[in-house]
Design a protein around this nucleic acid. Structure first.
Length: 375
RNA sequence: GGGUCUUUGGGUGAGUGGUUAAAACCGCCAGACUGUAAAUCUGGUCUCUUCGGAGUUCCCUGGUUCGAAUCCAGGAGGGCCCA
């Protein structure tokens, strides 16, 4: 029986750990390294699936177990024919497991060996997520790639806490694997934890690799740590991940983090940042972040980014977008979201080419210089 | 012409003798945002400042008081009623 998710390595960059590959899924292939837009509530906020495909050129998107379980309910999504049909997206989908909500809703939950009790952020009602429950929900949602239930530790956390949390996450991963039945249509990824401790990361990775998941993720970074800390964990963890499986770094990120991740040998990243900062009036550009809401762009008749090929940059000025943002018009949100998403998918298209040409390191230098990153 | 009510910072609008440079909201100016409790959140928004403070404010003028945006008198603008 063919597994739902397989990885094909096409080329390795000669100067870095970067890999150019393809992830095969039941809803088609994704070219890696890739940036995956986040659509928490079965929608990438303000963007239609058609725009995601045609303008943004997204190959896969994320959605979220916790949020869809609460609303509209995973059973309803199943009744609709699954997430793909429900939201009219026929390309691959990855569902996150709710482990990030264990982190971000920390005031509203309690963790035990068996699972996590949440008080809904919507109405205060109590809900219990066990690894088995999460698998049931994710099977009902029907994404191509589903994530094992984990705990994402805050930064900083003590060694002791991180260790026992990581070990519990591994035990939960075992239970997820046992509970996951729909292995022909869904690939279950294990999530490496261990915080900012090298030996814990290694331990987590080793234990999960023994379980032979079709893919592995690094979780628990990009949680507010300084960049050096992020890079350290990335650099000692990613190279140890299996070469024949997709490697997913959760919650990243900014353009520099995406490039660093690719260099470290990561295949997949996701982040809410492009759509969130769009809603807050900011654009990624090849010359750095532009807070287009600011007064200095009041009479800026140029595009957000003169090197960008997106719908927004082809048609609208900074001055107009600033006006839309200032007047709280929804088109402003949409135009900025389209641009930011396209900026990152295009960045990764370029990263793929540079890997093929063994030139990623030079590209990074060039990109950093123009963007204004110091490192 | 008479009576009556009213006038606060860019706007709306609290405040009726003393921690009031003056609530709140809006606007404006910035900052943050990384597996989305986020079209959100935080800070600033009279003037000057060596960031410790200093100075000048609540339509205008004069007064009462130790002390006034707050009380009194007159004036100016606005609303309503009567002629």
């Amino acid at each position: 029986m063919k597994p739902a998710i397989t990885y094909e390595l096409l080329h390795e960059d000669k100067n870095t750990g970067a890999r150019r590959g393809v992830v095969h899924t039941p809803h088609g292939d994704i070219q890696t390294p890739i940036f995956m837009p986040v659509g928490t509530q079965a929608t990438v906020k303000s963007i239609t699936p058609e725009e995601l495909k045609e303008e943004i050129k997204a190959q896969i998107i994320l959605s979220n177990t916790y949020h869809l379980y609460l609303r509209p309910g995973d059973k309803l999504v199943k009744e609709a024919g699954g997430l793909h049909k429900f939201m009219n997206w026929d390309r691959p989908i990855l569902t996150d497991c709710g482990g990030f909500q264990v982190f971000s809703l920390s005031d509203l939950r309690t963790i035990s060996e068996d699972g996590v009790e949440f008080k809904s952020h919507l109405d205060g009602s109590k809900h219990f997520f066990s690894p088995e429950k999460v698998m049931e929900i994710e099977e009902n949602l029907g994404a191509d790639i589903i994530m094992a239930f984990d705990e994402c530790c805050p930064y900083p956390s003590t060694y002791e806490y991180t260790k026992q949390s990581m070990e519990r996450t591994t035990r939960w991963a075992i239970r997820c694997k046992e509970a996951h039945k729909n292995t022909e249509k869904q690939g279950l990824f294990g999530i490496i934890q261990g915080g900012f401790y090298e030996d814990l990361r290694k331990q987590s990775l080793e234990d999960l690799v023994k379980l032979d998941f079709p893919g592995y993720a690094i979780g628990g970074i990009s949680v507010g740590e300084p960049k050096e800390e992020f890079l350290k964990v990335l650099k000692y963890t990613a190279p140890l991940m299996p070469k024949d499986k997709p490697r997913y770094l959760m919650g990243v990120g900014t353009p520099d983090y995406l490039i660093e991740s690719a260099i470290a040998g990561i295949d997949m990243c996701d982040c809410v940042l492009p759509t969130r900062i769009a809603r807050n009036g900011t654009a990624f550009t090849s010359k750095g972040k532009v807070v287009v809401r600011n007064a200095t762009y009041e009479r800026d008749w140029g595009p957000l980014d003169d090197e960008c090929d997106c719908y927004t940059c082809k048609n609208y000025t900074r001055a107009y977008i600033r006006h839309l943002v200032k007047t709280n018009e929804i088109l402003g949100v949409r135009l900025l979201s389209m641009h930011n998403l396209r900026f990152l998918t295009k960045l990764m298209e370029r990263v793929r080419i540079e890997i093929e040409n063994d030139n990623l390191l030079n590209f990074k230098e060039e990109f950093y210089k123009k963007y204004g990153y110091t490192n």
